[in-house]
């Protein structure tokens, strides 16, 4: 596979490490009342879609950036690649 890195251009997937669902960005707030339940979902429950999937890839043999890759799990078509940092900020993560 080839991942079209937003800063570096197309790179072989062999340079990357796969983590999984980009929902892992959405770490729950530990201070809420049902934090344990939220963390359980965060840690253990994943969608496994046959189709478009947002997933985290780490450019370990490259610029060390985490990417959010939108990939079709049926065709491997990659429709979008974003820096995970930008996605995280857009989703409201900060300090």
């Amino acid at each position: 596979m080839i991942i079209n890195h937003p800063l570096l251009g197309p790179r072989d997937a062999a340079e990357f490490v796969y983590l999984g669902d980009a929902a892992l960005i959405d770490r729950p707030d530990p201070s809420v009342a049902d934090a344990a339940e939220k963390f359980h979902e965060y840690g253990y429950l994943r969608d496994n879609p046959a189709g478009e999937h947002q997933e985290l890839w780490y450019h370990e043999q490259g610029d060390r950036s985490w990417l959010v890759v939108t990939r079709n799990t049926l065709s491997h078509e990659i429709s979008k690649v974003e820096l995970a940092r930008d996605v995280a900020v857009a989703r409201g993560r900060g300090r």
Binding site: L56, Y58, W66, L83, A84, R95
Partner: peptide, 15 residues
Amino acid sequence: FRRLEFARQCLWPGL
């Protein structure tokens, strides 16, 4: 190192 980068970029990108 990988996990630290994950925490830095994905969990607490404001740091």
